[in-house]
């Protein structure tokens, strides 16, 4: 169960991280002089970091062994 969960979690993390990098790249590269793109990018990255660490923390706290007994 843990191996399956880890594989799935890693895939999801990889996908979301790729999407985060894509959005941050666009906001960095395509700004216009005087706009607030940098602020928007920082807010987005801060939120993504919070969700990332919360997800990783929650994953490490899941009792995978007990889930096997629930099946």
């Amino acid at each position: 169960m843990f191996a399956f969960g880890l594989a799935l979690f890693s895939l999801v993390l990889l996908g979301f991280s790729g999407a985060v990098v894509t959005v941050a790249f666009h906001l960095s590269r395509y700004s216009v002089p005087g706009d607030r793109t940098a602020l928007v990018r920082n807010i987005f990255l801060a939120g993504s970091a919070i969700f990332f660490f919360a997800a990783v923390t929650a994953f490490t706290m899941v009792p995978w062994n007990e889930l096997d007994s629930l099946r």
Partner: peptide, 8 residues
């Protein structure tokens, strides 16, 4: 399910 799984 356990609370951490729901949180995840």
């Amino acid at each position: 399910v356990s609370a951490p799984l729901v949180t995840l």
